[in-house]
Structures are given as structure tokens and as C-alpha cells.
């Protein structure tokens, strides 16, 4: 991550607890302008709490939030004027139409009147704008929530699990919309999710949170490099144990994964060749030798399983 540019959003040592139960511990987020920051973590890891802290809905026990280089606690109202947010399920007034729902927030924010029709068109709800929100499907509600978040043409968008409850089509649409907002309008987007697959196709940067701690933060290529380090060599032979006993030096780091399968950490091409030669020289059959790269999902699961030190 380019650390020379000033971040659009940064948190410093953010801590939060509900009563005595600690929720967040020393979270240092850093979101570059013009990025789509995928904020990942399993349910209950503290994603929503972090999002609420970023909007000033909660007061941190320690630490601070900086938006656009200013302290949120001190300039909350002014800074929120440049932020659009969709927190969990969208807040919709069921007795109002889609149009009136947008209009309510438009009046509250003092945004120009023509924006209502614009954002409804942007999320494809123009035709349904005059139906009451209670008749909307889950996907339409989510899109209406996004339209409201986009009203003020904000520089920063905070989307908390925006694809929750959407069908595959809806998820693809949401992804396309995020990509367009970044590419065409230069918006910075922080989007939280518990699924890496949803994020990897659209995010430029990723932060992974686990039990209230940030366990990884970096660009998507950084995360991919982390996963290369976990590439393994899969060796298939007749009997894994015999093979390991005959070649104790070469196969010291191997773990048996089946009666005839051994996993070795991948070191280099030369090492791979040496293993192949040694197995044949020892008179053991070599049925297969291939590289296996864990998927991004495996890497994510690995990150959120254990508690490694801060990446």
C-alpha cells in the first residue's frame, strides 16, 4: 500500500467494548482515496461495530477516526456531509413510496431537488418509484437504500453487507454498480462482507478482521502474495510413510494427507526436481507431483481461523 499519499479514512488504535465485553481492539484502518476497500471478517468479528464507529454512531473507548484528514469526533456533522452510508438493512419507511423515502433524506440533507430522480434512475428504480416501499422485494429495498446513500454525491461510501439477502443477479448488479461508481465518479468505497468471493472481484484493497483485531490489511495483490507463500507440493506415491522414512532429510517438513499422499511446503523448482529424483532413486513409484495453490478463500479462512500477528 502506498503510504506516502494521505488516506481518505484512517483509524488510530480504535477500541470499543459493550460494557465489559471487548469488541474491537486497536484497529488501525487505512483507506486510500479512490479505492474499494473490502472489509472482511466472519459474522461477529466486529465489522458492523467498526462501521458504526466510522459514522460516529458509537463513541470509541479509545482511539480516533479521521475522515478526509479531520477528526470525526470534533467535526462529525460537517464530515458526514461528504459520507453516504448503508448500514445493515436499509432504513425504509414502509408507509412511504420509494420516491418519498429518497425525498425524506434529500430534505434532511438539503440536497438539490433533481437528485431524487437521478439516484432512483442510477439504481434502476424509476419505474417503481411510486409504489410503497412495503411492496418492494429485498433486492429493491437494498437498491433503494443505496440510492439514499448516494443522494449527496458523497466522496466516501460506507456499505455494510450490501449484498445481504440478494440473489446472485442482485449481487452481480451491486458489484457492477460499485465498480462504476469508482471508475466513473472516483468514489471511495468501504464495503464489508463475510464472503471473500464477493469482495475479490471488486476490491482494490482488503482488510481482514478477526475477533476485533485487524489481522491483515493491504492491497488485493498483497493478499494474493500472502497466499503464494502458502503454496504446497503434493506428492503421490504408493505408501506415504515408507517414502518419508526412506527420505528423512528431504521430506522432513512433509505432512501425510492420505495413505499415498504427502504435502510439502513449496520451496523452489530445484527442490521440486530434487524430490522427484530422490523418490525415483529410492525405488518408490512416483504417481504424481504437482503444485497446489490455496484459493483466496482458503487464505481468508486461514487468516480468520488462527490469530497470527498483524500482517
Amino acid at each position: 500500500m502506498n503510504s506516502s499519499s494521505s488516506p481518505l479514512l484512517a483509524t488510530h488504535g480504535l477500541c470499543f467494548s459493550f460494557g465489559k465485553r471487548p469488541i474491537l481492539h486497536d484497529v488501525n484502518l487505512r483507506v486510500e482515496p479512490g479505492s474499494i476497500y473490502g472489509f472482511l471478517g466472519p459474522n461477529g468479528a466486529g465489522k458492523s461495530t467498526t462501521m458504526r464507529l466510522l459514522l460516529g454512531l458509537l463513541r470509541p473507548a479509545a482511539g480516533s477516526v479521521q475522515l478526509f484528514g479531520h477528526d470525526l469526533a470534533r467535526h462529525r456533522v460537517a464530515l458526514l456531509g461528504r459520507v453516504g452510508a448503508l448500514i445493515e438493512n436499509p432504513s425504509l419507511y414502509d408507509h412511504l413510496t420509494g420516491h418519498e423515502n429518497v425525498e425524506a433524506t434529500r430534505r434532511l440533507r438539503g440536497v438539490a431537488a433533481h437528485r431524487t430522480a437521478e439516484v432512483l434512475a442510477l439504481v434502476g428504480l424509476t419505474d417503481n418509484a411510486h409504489r410503497p416501499a412495503r411492496e418492494y422485494s429485498l433486492g429493491m429495498r437494498q437498491r433503494l437504500g443505496l440510492a439514499i446513500a448516494l443522494l449527496s454525491d458523497p466522496d466516501l461510501l460506507l456499505l455494510d453487507e450490501p449484498t445481504n439477502g440478494l440473489d446472485p443477479n442482485g449481487i452481480i448488479e451491486m458489484r457492477e454498480l460499485m465498480r462504476r461508481l469508482r471508475q466513473e465518479q472516483g468514489k471511495t468505497i468501504v464495503v464489508s462482507s463475510h464472503l471473500i468471493n464477493e469482495i475479490e472481484k471488486v476490491a482494490t484493497h482488503v482488510g481482514v478482521i478477526q475477533q476485533g483485531r485487524l489481522v491483515f490489511q493491504g492491497s488485493l495483490p498483497d493478499l494474493q502474495r500472502l497466499q503464494t507463500g502458502r503454496t504446497r507440493l503434493v506428492l503421490e506415491t504408493q505408501d506415504a510413510d515408507t517414502c518419508r522414512n526412506l527420505l528423512p532429510r528431504l521430506l522432513a517438513g512433509a505432512t501425510p494427507a492420505g495413505p499415498g499422499t504427502l504435502w510439502l511446503p513449496w520451496v523452489s523448482r530445484e527442490h521440486t526436481a530434487e524430490v522427484a529424483a530422490a523418490v525415483t532413486a529410492a525405488g518408490l513409484p512416483l504417481y504424481g507431483l504437482h503444485l497446489e495453490q490455496p484459493s483466496l478463500e482458503d487464505t481468508f479462512l486461514h487468516l480468520t481461523e488462527a490469530r497470527p500477528t498483524l500482517a
Binding site: 479512490g34 478526509f68 484528514g69 460537517a78 434532511l108 438539503g110
Partner: peptide
């Protein structure tokens, strides 16, 4: 990662002006 020509990024240093409390109440 696809690198994109982002349009002019928002000015960070200037603090956006907040409307006065009565304007907020009216809205």
C-alpha cells in the same frame, strides 16, 4: 488489480462547512 484513471480526487484538507443549527433543524 485494474488501474483506473480516477477523476480528480476530493480535496482533503478543507473542512466542508456544516450548516448552522437552525438550518439543520429546519431541514
Amino acid at each position: 488489480m485494474n488501474s483506473v484513471l480516477t477523476p480528480a480526487l476530493p480535496e482533503l484538507a478543507t473542512l466542508p462547512a456544516a450548516t448552522n443549527p437552525f438550518g439543520q433543524l429546519r431541514r
